[in-house]
Simulated assay, not measured.
Amino acid sequence: MSTENRTVCIVLTAGGVRLAEVLKRSTDCTVVSTKALEGVDRIEPDFKTLVKEAWLNFDHMIFFCSLGIVVRSIAGLMESKFTDPAVLAVDEQGTFCISVLSGHVGGANKLCERVAADLGAVPVVTTATDRKGLASLDMLMLKEGINPKYYRDEIVRVNSELVSGKQVMIFTQDSLTTDGPGFLIRSIGEAKKNSTGIWWHSSAPPEELSHLIWIETPSLTLGFGCKKDKSEDQIRLAVDSFLSENKLHLRQIRNIATIDIKAVEPGLINYAKNEKLIIDVIDRDLIKAMETEFEGSDFVESTIGIRAVAEPCAVLGSRGRLLTTRYAFEGVTLAIGGIK
């Protein structure tokens, strides 16, 4: 199932189609069903196959049927709250819209509010922090460009404290704003030996503050180049190998910097989306102005008009300096830039 949009509406009856058509007025979505109903974009006779393909190919799944059908159909597909798609259930009368799965990281809770407003339904969100109108650590991370999947235990611990009514200190040099009460933002210099809370910084806390929960803010840029049509899996393998060799971790990467022609590679787009990384396109003129500082390739120049990609993009994308040598792995070239 190939799609340009990232939302799928799964309908079983004509009533479900009518609701999906209302949603289509404001949402770019694909309507699928097991039946040849008017208004359906794609038909898959086997319901189990339909759900599995939608699960693998879409970020948002909206079922127009009973909650029981939804639960049974996705039970064998769920892996992690950090990677599963957002799932909603809307009854065929359009009375209730229920956030079923991936409320925070997957975006189901916000999607639920929006879909309910479009359909005139009652939004049903059961996530504890949302119900109490509190901020949450995972949502703050997403807002600040940090992938929550690397901090599973920390998120559970902090969100539990917030729900229990405690205020959590965050010591940082960044200008953080939260979506609700619960966090107290303080400067790094205010952290004391007896302080509790979160150390929000790219560097580890000093030894006397090592008891604080460390959220490592990403500060490095991954310069990227590749041969045409490299898949997401091939890119992932190259990046993992490169970072391992340089004793780095993906959670330290803030953005991917590359040239325009590589920024549209489907494999890179999917990789960046799944790792919640921004792709920054570096201007060709800026690259050409400094490409002689790095080892270039006649072949690359004959293909895209620039002799080097990964290294100058790493430097320009980080506004710093080159921190690693160029790394080549099966048609993928990588380099790290940063301010250190």
Rank of each mutant, 00 (worst) to 15 (best):
G94V: 02
H104M: 05
G225N: 06
F183V: 05
I339A: 14
S66L: 04
I215C: 00
R319F: 15
Q234T: 09
R157V: 13
A308R: 07
P312N: 12
A54V: 02
A289V: 04
D91G: 02
V17G: 11
P266N: 00
I304L: 05
Y327M: 03
G133L: 02
R42E: 09
V40R: 13
D260M: 05
G182F: 10
A14K: 07
S26H: 11
E113V: 02
K228G: 10
G145I: 07
L137K: 00
F82S: 03
D91T: 03
L142H: 01
I278Q: 15
Y150W: 04
V22S: 09
A263C: 10
F183C: 01
F64N: 01
S203D: 15
D138E: 09
A310E: 09
A328W: 15
E291D: 05
S231D: 06
G68F: 00
F171R: 05
S160W: 12
K149Y: 12
P45N: 07
D298K: 13
D179V: 01
E265T: 04
I279Y: 02
E293D: 10
A289W: 07
V124N: 01
A108W: 01
D46S: 14
A328V: 14
P85M: 01
Q252N: 10
N57A: 14
D233M: 14
